[in-house]
Amino acid sequence: MRVLALESSCDESAVAVLDEKAGLLAHRLFSQIALHEAYGGVVPELASRDHLRRLLPLVEETLKAADSTSADIGGIAYTAGPGLIGALLTGAALGRSLAYAWEVPAVGVHHLEGHLLAPMLEQSAPELPFLALLVSGGHTMLIDVQALGRYQVLGESLDDAAGEAFDKTAKLLGLPYPGGAHLAALAENGRPGIKLPRPMLDRPGLDFSFSGLKTAAQLALGASGPDAQHRADLAFAFQEAIVDTLVVKTSRALEQTGLERLVVAGGVGANRNLRERMRQMAQARGAEVFYPRIEFCTDNAAMIAVAGMWRLQAGQQEDLAIRARARWPLDGLEGAANQGKIPIKYE
């Protein structure tokens, strides 16, 4: 089976073609970062408008790059939530209608399931079950991935997501939008010394809280002005605090579940410091850690294709109603008959 997938849940328009035997054939992405930069954040209406401009040309381009025609496509997957409702509906309406015209099944995919399954795009894909740390601008979650489609959320952020805290603190430091990656780069020149709290480490449980850390960073910045080295030191301290918190809670979750495989997914999963510290922690525990390649940490359609392919192969498909959900709890998803089987069989 060959699947065409569309992603439009936030500010990236993306399309991918995935083949069950050959793997990922092509993927394309248009980032709207420049569009939203002037506003300091994603403007939902502008995002929706741009998805409608970009998606169909991306479909055409991706099919061409995958050397595929409509006759080769056995199903269409699209992100059906959670996310910005207007943005989601654009992709869902296009994807569902295209599937109707091609007379192939369509399936709406949970965006976070896509992130969880992104490492399945690699040759060295993890086996199930595994623990997933999903850490991005919108989410910070620890998830027990028991089987495909069966996810238990063990803990999540009670306020800001880790990536959101990165971006907001970057803004305080005067870094360009979106600032997370800029903050990480600035931290390279930072020195240890500034003390920031490690939120919720002293409490049991696996929930996170990052908004207080942002406030602490603001106070630390205010104390000594905009000196360049001080800002680098603060970036260093901030990143250390986030990474420490994520590593300790993830270690705790591995302990609690007895799981031996860890997947770190989502945009913050691209952070080099986080990757190195997770590797050390996992090594010390005798656990294996898996990452999607950097470009599939952030939003993309390849991961939607993986989740979609698996669900289509399990016989799931949408009726003719076009549906999208702004909110959609991950542990409310249903599993399917072929649980445990990884959709792509490389040859």
Binding site: E45, S48, R49, L52, L55, L56, V59, E60, S70, I85, G86, L89, T90, G91, A93, L94, G95, R96, S97, L98, A99, Y100, A101, W102, I322
Partner: peptide
């Protein structure tokens, strides 16, 4: 309505491109 217009346009694009 912005979202309403986009639904019809995206459906039209999907049907037309597909056929």
């Amino acid at each position: 309505a912005f979202t309403g217009i986009r639904i019809a346009m995206a459906v039209a694009q999907g049907l037309a491109y597909g056929a």
